Computed example of a mutant assay.
Amino acid sequence: MQATNHSAHTRRAESEPQHFPPLELVNRPTVPTEQAAHYLLRRPQTLRGWACAETFPDGLRPVRVNGRLCWPVAGIKAALGVAA
């Protein structure tokens, strides 16, 4: 079996952290799991576990859009104690 060679660009893209706008500048009602995890200082898998077990902080209930989790920005701000 032959090993798959990935270009340096592909490897670099996987290791680069994602950059999200500051929470104060987000004007959408919900954000995806990766972005919510960034704001809450958690790993995305932690938020997925919260959603599965329904053990998320008060006011942070995710909604599903086309099978994907979306986290309410107002709930993220409430969990962080930031004024909405």
Rank of each mutant, 00 (worst) to 15 (best):
Q45A: 13
L60K: 03
W50R: 00
R64K: 15
H19D: 12
N27L: 13
G81E: 03
L41R: 14
Y39C: 05
A51M: 05
V82R: 14
W71L: 08
R28K: 13
H9G: 08
L47Q: 00
D58V: 13
H6L: 15
P22D: 11
F20L: 04
G59M: 06
C70R: 12
P29F: 04
E54C: 13
A78F: 09
A84W: 05
H38P: 00
A74M: 07
K77E: 01
L23Q: 06
Q18E: 15
V31E: 04
M1H: 09
A83S: 12
R12C: 11
E34M: 04
P62T: 01
A84Q: 11
N5P: 06
G75W: 02
A36M: 06
E16K: 13
W71F: 08
R11N: 12
R68I: 03
H38Q: 05
N66H: 14
Q2K: 15
P72E: 02
F56I: 05
R68T: 09
W71P: 06
A79C: 09
P21M: 04
T55D: 06
E14K: 15
R68F: 10
A36K: 01
C52E: 14
A83N: 10
T4F: 09
G59A: 09
P62K: 00
F20E: 04
K77S: 05
R64Q: 13
W50P: 01
C70D: 06
T33Q: 03
G81I: 08
N66A: 15
D58T: 13
A8M: 11
P22E: 08
L47P: 07
E34I: 00
P21W: 01
Q18N: 15
N27C: 13
N5E: 15
G59Q: 05
A3L: 14
V31F: 04
T33P: 08
N27W: 08
Q35D: 07
V65E: 08
H6E: 12
H19R: 15
A13T: 12
P22N: 09
A3G: 11
A51L: 04
G49T: 13
A37S: 06
Y39A: 02
R43L: 13
L60N: 03
R61N: 09
A36G: 11
R42D: 00
L23Y: 03
A36C: 10
R12D: 11
R48Q: 10
L69E: 02
Q2W: 13
A84M: 08
W50M: 03
R11V: 12
V65H: 07
P29W: 02
A84L: 10
A13V: 10
A36L: 06
F20P: 09
Y39K: 04
W71E: 01
L60H: 02
L47S: 00
L23C: 09
V63N: 01
R61M: 10
N66T: 13
A37H: 01
S7T: 15
H19Y: 11
E54A: 15
L80A: 06
P17I: 04
P32Y: 02
E14A: 15
L47G: 02
E54Y: 07
T46L: 07
L47Y: 02
R42A: 09
